[in-house]
Design a binder for these strands. Structure first.
Lengths: 196, 196, 196, 196
DNA sequence: CATGAATGAGCTTTCATTCAT
DNA sequence: CATGAATGAAAGCTCATTCAT
């Protein structure tokens, strides 16, 4: 993958929408070429193939997401507050770029074949949550739970709820109010369903 | 789709594995033909195409899952107990047929294009949970929460956690201990993270 | 080809229309099966294949046409009168069964590969005309012309004019007034264009 | 259809022969590819399919034929002389490119599905003849006849006679002496059969 | 005798990818 | 550096045909 000029980066944004609408295999290079107005052979000049374009788009988004999450995790506050900030950052990234987030989730099944992306997802979604759960337990703010399961559950709750709102939004940007959804998520996650 | 003989139904089971390994688009009819030992033209005799085969497999599994869930929801016990039973039934279906469940989740992004399947997923996963949440709130066993979000979260928590264990199991059947995972899920969902 | 029962013969009539509408290759056995309400494997029981069905239909029609033409040629009257009767008989056969006649002409290009049919066409169209031309010249009723060319021309004039009317008729039966068209054809053929 | 380079145009000539030998449906893209030495995917790059290749070939020939006919019709001389010139031009085009002309006639039955070609046939064959018949009648050189029928007859006489000679010639180029055949045709058409 | 079930053979079509310019 | 032109490879799909019953 060659260095991507800012202009090219800009044009490529539109490619996410095509991937989101048609899926990876349903998307032809020609379609990407038409949408981005970059000749297909030029796409090949910059990328080694369709998969690398996908990787680039996902990587770009995950990088930005990671940055936001990183920010949240390093902030002040208790584990609980920082966890809320992390979830908000994750949902915010989804709300702001619904197309890319939809692609990511649609291609979850393919992600094992894209180790670079899998690692970035781990870095942006799993790792911060796992860390804060551990911190919270260590500092006695959280109950002692199975961290592995809890991380999966939180990851699942966040992305599926986010995806639900992304799909319901039919392409609006931002797709939903990330703070409100994050509050709703955190409320359940922290307090649980049960009336005590 | 013609009537599927029992023999055919049996052979088709193997197709799920191929779909799980390679994804829908990565799976060729020829591959299904080789795996099932049914000539590709015979597959076309029974199904209109690859998509109908996928629909059949998912439908088959979702039907069985629905049956288990239906059973759980109709049982005795409080909303809380029945919710636990539902989650256990869902995770149990996943553990017992990891390949099909993996296919389903890998193709979540495509599911809008398969309305029949989308409806079956709703019937097997969303609807029962939404109903029990409403019941639990009505009978004052659960706190008042946003049912839409809570349903998405629970759905996400269950399937992503299940999927996590399915993938970790590398093809073992059953893929994981569904009761143990269900307990873990229910613990967090009912009580929440926060130490009180 | 086995003996065709009258019932079968009756049902097969409808097949001409399909051949006429879709052409030989565009017609599937399944389409013939549906139209005739004879199962495709039963068609194979009676015929060796699609081509034999076509041959049967054309042969059937050509036989009837030949019978009419034979009648005309054997009748009383001068070569001129009998030629008119032949042309009328040919056009009449076309008008009465426009579908089959359209198939015949659409498949003219294939006819060399169906020697049996080619021979029947010769018997029903060329030979009678050639014979009457020779007779007419011999009896000094006709000018001396190149019989080969004149036969082709007359054949072409008759079938193309007939086809023109068949196509214009859009499926009506009879497709046109064969006597009127025959008069028109004979007028030109006998007298020529030139004002003398 | 993309712009066809001269080289491509040259290679495509050979395709007519295949179409003539095997008919449209009997001709596979692969056969065209082998004959023209153009890879089948390249054929698809230039044409949308087999039908467009046929259309191109027929269009090419009809254009040239039309040019010759146009020339004849615009020439000096009486309607009679110009009609003879038109018929000669038509037969000459057939003699010079027997393969394409054979394809055209073999696919006459399909021509309604190729409106562009049907129109070109009309322009090259019917229209000029109809016009000259009308002219000849108007200037009192021809008897008053039904122009519609007479045009069909003349069209039929010309193409069927031409086709007869094309088939008899077994691929020789030119396939026959167009002037001689045209004379023969015109003799009959102008003077008629009847001895007066 | 007639037919439902099954399939071998093969064609059209698409597309990722290359490369000369 | 960027791209228009070209193509190899492979997939989906159709259908004529067979045969056990």
């Amino acid at each position: 993958m060659r260095d991507i000029s800012d202009d090219m980066r800009e044009r490529l944004r539109a490619a996410s929408v095509i991937f989101a609408e048609r899926g990876f295999d349903g998307t032809t290079i020609e379609a990407l070429s038409e949408t981005t107005e970059v000749p297909s052979s030029t796409l090949y000049y910059y990328f080694t193939g369709k998969e690398e374009i996908l990787t680039f788009l996902l990587g770009d988004w995950l990088e930005r997401t990671s940055a936001g999450v990183e920010n949240a995790i390093c902030g002040e506050g208790s584990a609980k507050e920082r966890l809320a900030a992390v979830v908000t950052a994750q949902l915010d990234a989804m709300a702001k770029d619904p197309a890319t987030c939809q692609v990511l989730l649609a291609e979850l099944g393919r992600i094992d074949r894209l180790p670079h992306v899998a690692e970035a997802v781990r870095a942006a979604f799993h790792a911060p949550v796992a860390k804060l759960l551990a911190d919270g337990i260590a500092y006695d703010h959280f109950r002692v739970v199975d961290i592995e399961n809890a991380t999966s559950m939180l990851y699942g709750a966040v992305i599926i709820t986010g995806l639900h709102h992304v799909i319901s939004s039919h392409g609006a940007v931002p797709a939903f109010d990330s703070t409100a959804v994050a509050d709703s998520v955190m409320d359940l996650v922290l307090t649980g369903l049960e009336r005590v």
